[in-house]
Design a protein around this nucleic acid. Sequence first.
DNA 1: TGAAATGTTGGGGCG
DNA 2: ACGCCCCAACATTTC
Length: 479
Amino acid sequence: MRTALVWFRRDLRHFDHAALHHALRNAQRVYCVFVFDRDILDALPGRKDRRVEFIRHSVSELDDALDALSRKAGGAGAGLLVRHDRAVEVIPQLARELGVDQVLANRDYEPAAIERDSRVAQALADQGIGFVDFKDQVIFERDEVLTQVGKPFSVFTPYKNAWLKKLDAFFVSAYPVEKYAARLAPRLAGEGVPDLAALGFEASNLAELRMPLGMSGGRALFDDFRGRIDRYKRTRDFPAVKGVSYLSAHLRFGTMSVRELAAAAWQHGGEGAETWLNELVWRDFYHMILWHHPRVVGAAFKPEFERVQWDDAPELFAAWCEARTGYPLVDAAMRQLNRTGYMHNRLRMVVASFLTKDLGIDWRLGERYFADQLIDFDLAANNGGWQWAASTGCDAQPWFRIFNPVTQSERFDPEGRFIRRYLPELEAVPDKFIHAPWTMGGIDQAAARVRIGFDYPGPVVDHALARERTLARFGVTRA
DNA sequence: TGAAATGTTGGGGCG
DNA sequence: ACGCCCCAACATTTC
């Protein structure tokens, strides 16, 4: 192979990169491209989108990093080709213009991406250009971890056991790119990373959030987390505490390498690191499930749950989205999501349980809302998480397991610190009432300077009543 | 990666 | 001292 084109998608880094590694090793000249795909961008719900900014920033950092990588290896510098177009058209066109022999990319397991890649591969094949893809974004993919009878797992724990048993240094070793980096093609004249406006977007509040972006941001977050990983198991469920890694968006966009993270956790050992590694296994699990069962996009994994009749309750759904359910932990969580594009994982479970089991609303509506809002949105993990909470998924929680939003609040935000961070109107409410402020009498409300039903809503549903309705609703799955 | 209802046990108050 | 009752604490079952 003489020349190659590496197509970056959700792997926005210049290190430990499967496709880049293979391209540099096997071709004499390697071009790199990123496409702001109009098929994706044009379908986004708004013209302010934190993800587009995250990507744009990360692409820009990648562009610089490729240049530095080339120079360090004695090359003449390099850069990323950036296009704002339909990927299905521009990739084959660019490959032809550059005269490459092969296009290389890292595998994506989402149905739409599989369809896109197969169309690109066909168009390339028509021009006599090869297309190859590599495992990069997970540790084990597709059929790599199977049951003893050779079938894909649908229960997490045995999957995890098999996954851990199979793990060894080989599967987490990095794909080095330094040795042949001088083969990166020199930067072409007139190339550059478009600004946000050129992409048709406006600035969101991402800059004020001071979220660490790009490879450097992922690195900084991981360096910080390594110092806390031993406490992960004890602290991860408390949203007011800095207990989790905050690396989800970096795993989503590949600004960190999952191999490096898994290797570090594996080598570190101890219950904190093991618990965190477990979360990376969940990620592999849901990607594996999505690849084997693409029908979970839009349908319950367990068919009998398609019989569940969800309520059509647009007012309640709006109250959930807009953080005015009257349950402080739910509302604080939804405000965190709306304001930052992120939500703590414990709270994702709480609000998902609340939407499906307290409000009786179809999990697909919640899934779609998260898909629109989350900066770390990943189809496989989001769908898996929602179906888990709604009890419709593989290895989901049992349908009669219904979170009590007040108990969850008492348990995981005992002093209401997280609640007050996002609901300043409850600032002066005493701890005793912070989880269920509607239980305050007039005197207490006056003392707390909040009028329930005016400054802060009363509960939109009664939990005990909603629980009974949900048990009845799910009864249809029995027979 | 629950919660609520129901069942059991045992200490202490009390006639 | 004894039995009875209450009820908190814990365990088990059910959804």
